[in-house]
Amino acid sequence: MEFINEFGGILIKGTMETLYMTFASVLISYLFGLPMGVLLVVTEDNHIMPSKTINRILGTIVNITRSVPFIILLIAVVPFTRMVVGTAIGSKAAVVPLVIGATPFVARMVESSLKELDKGIIEAAASMGCSNMEIIYKVMIPESMPSLTLGSSITTITLIGYSAMAGVIGAGGLGDLAIRYGYYRYESELMLVTIVILVVIVQAIQFAGNHVSKKINRLY
């Protein structure tokens, strides 16, 4: 009871901040990452829009961004964050580095989902007179939807992990609580509770992802 009185408020606030940061950055990183992933696939040799140049440039950008440790990215992009959001502190500001960190991850997830698709289906679509855009929107993406859905739950869970680090720029969230109270101030009980909440959120997302993916998949 005493525990709830003391920490209940910050736990709710922390949970809200984590959820806000995670879902906002997932949505925005798919906005950029989905087209990037599509481009990575279609510009490959023997695909519908082969281009070594685009493929290589995009691949390199993705790899460089993915190599930078997130905690460093978080601080390195502060000037950019300030330009976009107006401030470099808080949950809203944290969305900017989260999106930058997650977009290349999303691009690779999308790439691997789309690559699972049988090339024969693309060939069949081309034989029916589909344009490249129609192949992407009407064939590649809808046919990969179950796999893309699973990928999005993995992305979301990864972003929950990333968001824990955003405490560094005062973004709050559950991870920040666990570090500040649990780790620095030896409030083990609070740390345990934040971890339990995180576990529940991760489980729920994974469960939802698996469920939806299975529900929409017509392959089995």
């Binding site: 049988d118 289906i121 029916m128 007179g129 017509r218």
Partner: peptide, 30 residues
């Protein structure tokens, strides 16, 4: 021109996430 040249394949190459009627409707949609 391709719309006037139908093609079928060894592995069928149907759209697995669309049902039968929607597979047949697909080229009409295009």
């Amino acid at each position: 021109v391709r719309q006037s040249l139908g093609m079928i394949f060894q592995d069928f190459n149907l759209l697995m996430q669309r049902n039968v009627i929607d597979n047949i409707r697909f080229p009409l949609e295009i």
